[in-house]
Simulated scan of single mutants.
Amino acid sequence: MDLLVNIDVPDLPRAIGFYTDAFGLTVTRRFGDGGAELSGWPVKIYLLEKTEGSLGAGQESRRYTRHWTPVHLDVVVDDIETAFIQAVAAGALPESEIRTEIWGKIVVMVDPFGHGVCLIQFLNRGYDELAPRLGDPAA
Rank of each mutant, 00 (worst) to 15 (best):
M1L: 12
M1N: 10
L3K: 06
V5G: 07
V5L: 14
N6H: 10
N6E: 09
I7Q: 11
I7L: 15
I7T: 07
V9T: 13
V9K: 11
V9C: 15
D11F: 12
D11Y: 12
L12A: 11
P13A: 15
I16P: 07
I16G: 14
I16C: 15
F18H: 05
F18D: 01
T20I: 08
T20A: 15
T20V: 09
F23A: 04
G24F: 06
T26F: 09
T28V: 12
R30C: 04
R30Y: 07
G32R: 03
D33I: 08
A36K: 01
E37P: 00
L38F: 04
L38Q: 05
L38R: 04
W41C: 07
P42D: 13
V43C: 14
V43S: 11
K44R: 08
K44V: 03
I45H: 06
Y46L: 12
Y46A: 09
L47N: 09
L48K: 08
E49Y: 10
K50T: 13
T51G: 10
E52R: 11
G53D: 02
S54T: 09
S54E: 08
L55T: 09
L55A: 13
G56T: 04
G56D: 03
A57H: 08
A57G: 11
G58Y: 09
G58F: 14
Q59K: 14
R63A: 14
R66Q: 04
H67I: 12
W68H: 10
T69R: 13
L73G: 09
L73M: 13
D74V: 08
V77R: 07
I80W: 06
T82P: 01
T82G: 09
A83S: 14
A83W: 02
F84V: 03
I85R: 14
I85M: 06
Q86E: 03
Q86H: 05
V88C: 14
A89I: 00
A92V: 00
L93N: 00
P94S: 12
E95H: 14
E95S: 11
E95L: 14
S96K: 04
E97C: 08
I98A: 13
I98Y: 07
I98F: 10
I102K: 15
G104D: 05
G104Q: 08
K105Q: 11
I106V: 15
V107M: 05
V108P: 00
M109S: 02
M109E: 01
M109R: 00
P112D: 01
F113D: 12
H115A: 12
C118D: 10
I120D: 03
Q121S: 11
F122P: 00
F122I: 00
L123T: 13
L123K: 13
R125C: 03
G126A: 15
D128Y: 13
D128G: 09
P132R: 10
R133H: 04
L134C: 03
D136L: 04
